[in-house]
Design a protein around this nucleic acid. Sequence first.
DNA 1: TTATTTCATATTGACATACTAGGAAAAAGG
DNA 2: CCTTTTTCCTAGTATGTCAATATGAAATAA
Lengths: 140, 140
Amino acid sequence: MKISTKGRYALRLMLDIAMHDTIEPVRLKDTAERQNISVKYLEQIISALVRAGYVKSIRGPQGGYRLMKKPTEYTVGMILRQVEGNMVPVSCLEDEAVDCERQEQCVTLRIWKELDVAMRSVLDKYTLADLMGWQQEITP
Amino acid sequence: MKISTKGRYALRLMLDIAMHDTIEPVRLKDTAERQNISVKYLEQIISALVRAGYVKSIRGPQGGYRLMKKPTEYTVGMILRQVEGNMVPVSCLEDEAVDCERQEQCVTLRIWKELDVAMRSVLDKYTLADLMGWQQEITP
DNA sequence: TTATTTCATATTGACATACTAGGAAAAAGG
DNA sequence: CCTTTTTCCTAGTATGTCAATATGAAATAA
């Protein structure tokens, strides 16, 4: 019941890009240094975010990555779901789940559903913009 | 980010014992049949619950298991924590966590903390007694 | 043409998950 | 005492996931 490094790093990566979005796109090399994560691992993580259309890449020298939307438009949940998969607490709640025959009588399912709602309510409440604000409070 | 079968089965196991608590203790053989889980796997799961003092075992013929407390005294979270471990969403929040040097500047930690609170609020709100009530509504 | 960047795919080692297997220990009933 | 039924304990095993590293190709700015 843990969020993987991929998910946690993805959030820090997106925040790092958002915080350093100037005329120049953000290079993974720089993010890697600032966040203390290997470039190679970041490459893997960001590929999912590129595929999702969350960031756009510019190749070659002076290349890098840039956000496609405003920081207010990325919730934490959106980012996690791209790299972690669906983020539901039990597979019974997955869209592709074959519904099991005991589902109607399954009282534990009520718990999992409510847990799912509670998790979403947190993860979809905050956006990158919120994280940016907090970050600026700490390191002005 | 999934609850394992062990956690889910543990909850069904405890509910099954609670629902069939009569003069006779509940045998795993019967639970296994009702819940469609192997006796061997249930044995493993229940050992953690015995160790925690949640159920008491009676060996030999006419043996089985019995709850140590009233169903109202077991929250879902308590049961899950025994078999799944601490149930916090990131290891930074574990009691034994070596606190990382970036903790003070870590804005993502705020998210994880709030996620943890939200999860607890659901998992510690419901007890076995609630589950029993729901079950009885469905199959009177 | 070279250096710098992203892009794509494969490989690795460690660990976790979801079980099954085999037998020992306890105890009730005859 | 003996047999059967139950829990108890340890080990094994197949599969998968995690957390990376490694290798090299493709694009592009200067």
